[in-house]
Design a protein around this nucleic acid. Sequence first.
DNA 1: AAAATAAAAGATAAAAAACTCTTTTATTAT
DNA 2: ATAATAAAAGAGTTTTTTATCTTTTATTTT
Lengths: 145, 145
Amino acid sequence: MSIFSKTCEYAIRAVFFIAHRTESGDRVGIKEIATGISSPEHFLAKILQDLSRRGIVKSAKGPNGGFYMDEQTLRRPLVDVVEAVDGNGLFVGCGLGLVSCSEKKPCPLHAEFAVIRKNIHQMLVKTSIGDFTEDLNLGITNLKK
Amino acid sequence: MSIFSKTCEYAIRAVFFIAHRTESGDRVGIKEIATGISSPEHFLAKILQDLSRRGIVKSAKGPNGGFYMDEQTLRRPLVDVVEAVDGNGLFVGCGLGLVSCSEKKPCPLHAEFAVIRKNIHQMLVKTSIGDFTEDLNLGITNLKK
DNA sequence: AAAATAAAAGATAAAAAACTCTTTTATTAT
DNA sequence: ATAATAAAAGAGTTTTTTATCTTTTATTTT
Ligand code: FES
Ligand code: FES
C-alpha cells in the first residue's frame, strides 16, 4: 500500500509534467508525457481523458494538438487531482474502515487519524499544480522512473 | 483509496478485538471476532492465520481454542501489524511512485511526503496493540460497522 | 478410542485495479 | 477535398484484492 493509487500517482506526475511543459504555451502529446513520467501510454491516456473531461487539464485534437493548462488550471490545488482520481477516502471516513467516522462512536484510532488526515488534506489544499514547475525546469526535481 | 488496505483494516480491528477480549485470559474464536468487528469470517480467518504465523497473535486449535495474545504481543507496536499486512510502502519509497525516493533526484512532493510519512510512521510506532483495550472495555470506542 | 471443537490449509470465485490494443472523431495543414 | 495528426472512445486482457466454500489437522473432552 502506498498513499495514492497508481492511477493517481500517474495523474499527479502527468499534471506536473504538463504544467512545466505548458509554460511556453505549447501543447504536449500523450506519448511525450508518458515517456516523460515513465508511465504506460494507453493507460495514461485514459487517465488524462478523464482529467480533461473534468476540466483539470485542457486538450486539443489534431496536428499541434495535445494537452495543456492555462493560468486558471495551473492554480488549482493538488487536492482536485487526487479527489478526481481517488475520491475523498483519504480525508473523510474512518481510517479503520468503519462505515462512519464520528465522535460519538469512534474507532480506537479516531483521534490519531484525525491528525494525519488533516495533514494530508492541508498539504494537498495548499499546494497547487503550478507550484512545482520551476524546480522541474531547473532540473532540481524529477518525474521519471 | 484509504490509508490502509481492507485486509489491513480488518487486521487492526481484529487484533484490537482480540486484545480487549484476551485480558481476562481466555481465547476468542474466529466467528466471534468476525461478528465483533463486522468482517467476512473466512477472509478474516486467512488474515489471522497469517498474523499467527508471524507471531503477532497466538492461536490454539481444538475445544476452548481460539486466538489470544500475551503480555509480549500486547506490547508490540501497531506498525508491526501494518507492515505484516500492507508492507512498508506507506513509510518508505516515493509517494508519487518513482522507483526510489532520494534527496538527490526527488519528486516534486518529496519534502511534503517526508513530513506526512513520518507522521504516520510515528503514530504507528508509538501506539501498541494493547493501548486501546481500556476504551473498548468501557464502550467509549467501537470496532463494529 | 471416539466424538466434538476450532484453527489451518486448499481450492475457487467475484470484483476492482492496472494495463493493452484497436477504432473513431475532431482538427489542421496541404 | 485529402491526408496527416492526435486525442477520444471502445473493447478487451491481466493482475491484484477481496471474499467464499470445503477439507484437513490438531486438540480436548467424554
Ligand atoms: S471512527 Fe475511525 S477514524 Fe473516526
Ligand atoms: S522522491 Fe517522491 S517522496 Fe521522495
